[in-house]
Amino acid sequence: MTEVAVIGTGAIGRDLVGKIHRSPVLDCALVAGRNPESEGLKHAARLGYPTSAEGIDAVLAAGPFPIVFDATNALSHKEHWQLLKDVDTLLIDLTPSRVGDMVVPTVTGTRAPAARDVSLISCGGQAAIPVAHALAGRFPVSYLEVVSTVASRIAGRATRLNLDEYVATTQTALTEFSGVRDTKAILNISPAVPPATFRTAIHAVVPGASATEVRAVVAEAAERVRAFAPGYRVLACEVNGDRVVVSLEVAADSDVLPRYAGNLDIINSAAILVAEQHAARPVVVGG
């Protein structure tokens, strides 16, 4: 088992601890937050894991851990990377800080990441990039836009304060993985009751797209994501002239999250996959 630590005890941190608990190769050695009374620390303690309210200081004192998940916020992640970059740790960033190398499992492959700080981009990025990458690989896409909707109840303070970073990081990742220069990311927060399941719409300008081919490419990309995020599904795929609209939904498959919180489920599922690949990598002696 590979020992991992989690910093951040919001909904993302709590679900990560739940997913680590289910993992056959990862062992949760520390959960660190800021508030000793937080639900996240209590949840980790109930599962029998060591907890601390000392945040990154606790991780530095108890480490080094082979893997640390950062589920805090974009600004804090920059500090955490400065403090951990000289330690032999893989830092997996769940915030939209854009510091580390960006990872999308079905696009960047199943090899363990070479970088020591990897970024999971954003929930919208994890949902849209597999489809955007597949479309751009098959058709001459000239513009890409991704509009995601997160239920208000699951959008915590860090998400709300980091909207600018969400937009910038998602746009950068869309361009990096699709090769399309002109991209746009938008985030809506829905207050609907009962809460709306996380959704992402991909708008693309695709001259000469055939509806049949587009549907096949989208379906194949979605199937690959479902291998690690089973709640991922295509709701609609419309082609109208050179305009393509794909709408996707992600339902959470989690012991901790409500079904509608697919935004957290998909980014956390990807993070766990990265960690498990890293844990399984061959150890290079003297390397």
Partner: peptide, 12 residues
């Protein structure tokens, strides 16, 4: 309960 900005719901 669509809110302003959720035009993508129309397709669904």
């Amino acid at each position: 309960q669509a809110i302003a900005g959720q035009e993508d719901l129309i397709v669904d």
